[in-house]
Design a protein around this nucleic acid. Structure first.
Length: 319
DNA sequence: CGAAACATCCGCCACT
DNA sequence: GTAGTGGCGGATGTTT
């Protein structure tokens, strides 16, 4: 894993990447990554907070990376160094993964890596991104976008969600959750619609009538739950419930429920040997076919393939 | 896989 | 005038 640094680097975003990939927690059974902070410009570099960063590594190191992180960028009007853009393009051609946090997305955009793809950035910048790079399908309202080898995230702390998502993708939910626990952050923020994950920015605030129903529903994912039932449980009309749910959660009731079911399904695939039929039933799908359909739509793999990848804990590289 | 049955969701609007 | 509620219809999505 290589984190790219430059003059005026935002400290927090770099910190996120260092925290997730640059901290050795192998004593706790968590993966340790070969991690390097690589300077895109001649060090020492100034941080956005005034202190300086020095590192022995430069861009040549990107040639060996499986994952390259761009933790922000110093200004959307500043053109990134050509050497960096070239290195990124080469990495992607090689099949390496590239991720960005916040304004770092502009670096990937400038390298042309996002053309024809979905991407996101800090909400204050989405308009600029869309205007400047019309070939990018900008997702304004999500925490992060997973386009396979190219991943972009929204502002600041959304970078944590993206990093955890990557760990989850490569090592499974159990590892990602353990890591989240070590970092004392929530395992994954709720949501998830199509493709891999599109997580809404709004989170649940407890005390809201909605929160209780959420917990209630989570406890009985094995049962058939209709939106009307949930609404009744919340003592609201279906229409009002749907509205309140959306504003509290950023997701619609059914979409949320589906995400919960699939999440539980992932866990069971990783930790049990239940047959798909039985497992589908356990997570509230009437038939295994329905489960398979939703699962593969969401995760781009079949349940069985997912289990094969994550059930026996083993190494895997950035896909 | 497709078709038929069924559920969700979102704009619109009338109402408090 | 503003703010929230809830019913309705039909496009869209889900399950069987």
């Amino acid at each position: 894993v290589a984190a790219v640094v430059f003059d005026d680097i935002p400290v927090f975003e770099l910190g996120v990447v260092c925290e997730v990939f640059g901290t050795d927690r192998s004593a706790d059974g968590l993966p340790a990554y070969d991690f390097a902070v690589c300077a895109a410009e001649r060090p020492p570099l100034r941080t956005s907070s005034g202190f300086r960063i020095d590192t022995p590594f430069g861009l040549e190191r990107l040639a060996a990376a499986d994952l390259i992180a761009i933790p922000g960028w110093r200004g959307v009007d500043q053109r990134p160094p050509d050497a960096l853009l070239d290195a990124l393009r080469m990495a992607v051609d090689r099949g390496a993964c590239v991720m960005s946090i916040c304004s770092g997305t502009f670096v990937l955009a400038e390298a042309g890596l996002l053309d024809g793809r979905r991407a996101t950035t800090h909400w204050r910048l989405v308009k600029t991104l869309a205007e400047r790079y019309p070939a990018i399908h900008v997702e304004p309202d999500v925490l992060y976008v997973d386009e396979g080898t190219i991943l972009t995230s929204a502002g600041t702390s959304a970078g944590i969600d993206l990093c955890l998502h990557i760990v989850r993708r490569e090592r499974g939910t159990a590892v990602a959750n353990a890591l989240a626990r070590r970092m004392v952050v929530p395992p994954q923020r709720e949501g998830g619609q199509r493709q891999f994950v599109e997580t809404p920015v709004v989170d649940v605030t407890p005390g809201h009538g909605i929160a209780d129903v959420l917990a209630w529903a989570q406890g009985r994912l094995d049962q058939k739950l209709s939106v009307n039932q949930l609404a009744a449980r919340a003592h609201m009309s279906p229409r009002t419930f749907a509205r309140r749910f959306l504003s509290a959660t950023g997701s619609t009731p059914h979409r949320w429920l589906l995400a919960q079911r699939l999440g539980l399904g992932q866990k069971l695939l990783e930790t049990t040997d239940l047959g798909i039929e039985k497992l589908a039933e356990q997570v509230g799908f009437g038939t295994a076919a329905a489960f398979r359909l939703q699962f593969s739509r969401q995760f781009r793999t079949t349940p069985t393939a997912y289990r094969r990848a994550f059930r026996p804990s083993r190494e895997s590289s950035c896909s």
